Amino acid sequence: MSKPDVLCCTPFSPADIGRLSAQQTERLLGIALFGNDRIEARVACPVQHVGAPLLGGTLAGELWLGTGACRSGVHADIRYCVDELALYGVIEIDEPASSAQGSTPLQAAVADAYREIFALLDREGFPHLWRMWNYVPAINANSHGIERYRQFNIGRHQAFVDCARPPAHSPAACALGVAAGPVSIAFVAGRVAPITIENPRQLSAYAYPPEYGPRSPTFSRAVLVQLPAQELLFISGTASIVGHRTLHVGDVVAQTLESLANIAAVIEESRRFSLAPVRAEEFSYRSYIRHGEDFARVRAAVERELGETAAMSYVQADICRSDLLVEIEASASLAGANVRKTLA
């Protein structure tokens, strides 16, 4: 068979692992798996296990396929795979019982994890982070006198500063809460620097005022990656925020529609930079819903706005702000095959 020339991210269930062809198995860059299944013993690539329930019969996760045979490795606590274009890695960290004075255990653990990630990327020659997925237990709880999401932001920001990485050139990202388990971080990086894209309806997250914590969140609203055979657009976790304020507190339907309006604004902004047509129907989405009982209303709102055939998966998870009920992320391949296509 001819060598594939695009990166692919496809929905899958654990049973699909046994049905992969030899070529697909060689191309495995990484897997994101939601729920309680464990499959790491059956694959050589890194697996991000996210202990968050799926809603509405959504497939269990996403499987990243590289452009050719992948090489796997371990760096410190990170499992990773690389091909010619990209590196996919996963790190799970347990918070220490104590930390240095002036730093909470979560803050210290996150800073250490991000520094390990940057060291790996520099060593392997994939210095540019494209997309990150962060899952933090009890993200809205308070400990050591400060909310845990704010602790996470302090640790992440410190690593960016320590490693001389400007916040204005940060990757697309999300940070969600899970009930228990380690802090889990997955990431995709490459040799090509992404184009960062901001939302004209929102203040850039890294410029939030101090009321949201001692350090602002370090991520871009979206990034566009221009590769030889495709463009990848990663849109960060997006919520009902205009400027820097939460809108529609307590109204999950209105928050869903505002989140989709923000995603539409980012898609429109991306047209200024993309060399390929940006078509809304090429996007795939994931919706994180704080309360499982809101699933039917969120899905109905999504289908009214995007149509019943929109590629949307649904996960129950806590959102980074306690007054947010839903968050939606999106991604697409804007040239070549769709980045989230079904397994052949």
Rank of each mutant, 00 (worst) to 15 (best):
E198N: 02
A180M: 14
A173L: 11
V192R: 04
G177Q: 11
Y206E: 06
S204L: 01
S204R: 06
Y206N: 03
I185P: 06
R191G: 15
I197A: 00
S184W: 11
S204E: 09
N199S: 03
R201M: 04
I195C: 01
A179S: 12
P182V: 09
E198L: 01
A186R: 07
T196M: 05
G190W: 12
P182S: 14
Y206G: 01
P182C: 12
S204M: 03
R201G: 01
A180P: 12
R201L: 04
S204D: 05
V192P: 00
S184L: 10
A179G: 09
E198R: 00
P182A: 15
S204Y: 05
S204A: 05
I185Y: 10
A180N: 15
I185L: 10
A193P: 06
I197E: 00
R191Y: 14
L203A: 05
C174I: 08
I195N: 00
I195Y: 00
V183F: 13
Q202G: 04
F187V: 15
C174G: 13
I195V: 06
V188F: 08
V178K: 09
P194Y: 03
A179R: 09
A179F: 11
Q202H: 02
I195K: 01
A175N: 11
I195M: 01
G181E: 15
P200E: 05
R191T: 08
V192W: 03
V183M: 12
A193F: 05
V178T: 13
G181N: 09
I185H: 07
S184F: 13
E198I: 01
E198M: 01
S204H: 05
A189Y: 10
A175C: 11
V178L: 11
